[in-house]
Write a protein that binds this DNA or RNA. Structure first.
Lengths: 204, 204
DNA sequence: CTGCGTATCTATACCGAGTATGTATTCGCG
DNA sequence: CGCGAATACATACTCGGTATAGATACGCAG
């Protein structure tokens, strides 16, 4: 519902038509998040269905202008007042991939991690370059939003890189533990020659 | 396509039916990502349509068993070999909210940030508690995957908290800069009245 | 042993986000 | 003039995700 609320918040600043909303939204995120125009119209249609916005009469050029309703205004206020709750963790493709990979036989997890790390660092560098180029408008200019978005992307990419390093060191430690099957770690080392969890889940 | 590939990778280890796949998937992520069973069937149906899996004859109990095809196997290999590329930044609700909030009139951004920070810290603590409880199976046990997932969630939550702090300090500096419009900050303060990088991305 | 709840198993309808495409008009510009 | 880009709206489609329905099997309390 992020898009819906975002558009609603824009409409809270005054009536607008679809294309205008698309442009406003993209401007605020510095083009980081291009919005498909079709999505704007369907989202507006759904918001209208739910009584959050209403169509005004078309303007001089025949454009369909939308206006926020009282109900919509309340919804925007609620959206801003309530924090985003991460009850269900967002499904991240990389995390899924690694979770499956470490438990699947015959997957070279270390290669996977290293390939991914290189890619993540590439992303991170591209973002950093963008940030340097676009440098710091310390004022309250309209670019602040775009900077915040950019910095969020950087923080996330850094977290991803750190996690990949962490995964790698964990893999190394697991490997070391497996290769020194002497005691000294009572009961932890898996029995050599067999893969734990040969069964799994829905035992038939 | 994360779900599709995840299920495909599971099928790469041997034929299975829908419910089994759901259970396997959830087991590998320690229940972090409950998978709606309906999604499994539709995903399997689409994968079958695309020639990645095929139905075997129903087993003794009449369950619909799927098998991966050669094409599917290639797809899995490709998935593991290629890194996840973040070409288009994922749309994060919080980031959208803040980007809109800082440019919207009449939104108390600092309150928003603080409310969100409290919520993020709550999430982070809950995750940390989980991690401590479930503690470290340093072996190659079946819990490794679940630990990785959990740690990823923690890293992400930490990044979010750090970002919120960063946003707050940026807001403070902007406020300070606005309240002391004297110089004394050579070259940093933007020329009053104009915004650098007015173009950028989707130039309006 | 009867029946109630829970787990297993499949299936379909629906929604929202996202993409692709089609169509028409306006506007800058060589 | 005309061509391409920008503006503007609309629809069809895919995919991930949720809700719900319905069927059978199983444990176990009364």
């Amino acid at each position: 519902m992020a898009i819906r609320h975002g558009l609603l918040a824009l409409l809270d600043e005054g009536p607008a038509y679809g294309y205008q909303l698309k442009a406003s939204f993209e401007e605020r995120t510095g083009g980081t998040w291009p919005l498909n125009i079709g999505q704007v119209y369907t989202t507006l249609a759904r918001a209208e269905r739910d009584g959050l916005v209403a169509q005004l009469e078309a303007d001089d050029e025949g454009r369909v202008v939308y206006e926020i309703t009282d109900s919509g205004r309340r919804e925007v206020a609620r959206w801003f007042a309530e924090p985003v709750r991460r009850e269900v963790a967002p499904r991240d493709e990389l995390t899924i991939k690694l979770a499956v990979a470490v438990t699947a036989p015959g997957v070279d997890v270390r290669a996977l991690v290293q390939t991914q790390r290189a890619e993540t660092m590439r992303t991170l560098q591209a973002l950093t370059r963008l940030k340097i180029d676009a440098d710091p408008p310390l004022d309250g200019s309209s670019d602040t939003a775009w900077h915040l978005v950019l910095e969020r992307l950087i923080f996330d990419a850094e977290a991803e890189a750190r996690w990949l390093d962490h995964v790698e060191s964990r893999l190394l430690r697991a490997k070391a533990a497996a290769e020194t099957p002497d005691q000294n770690d009572p009961g932890r080392g898996p029995a050599p020659g067999r893969t734990p969890r040969a069964e799994q889940g829905t035992a038939r």
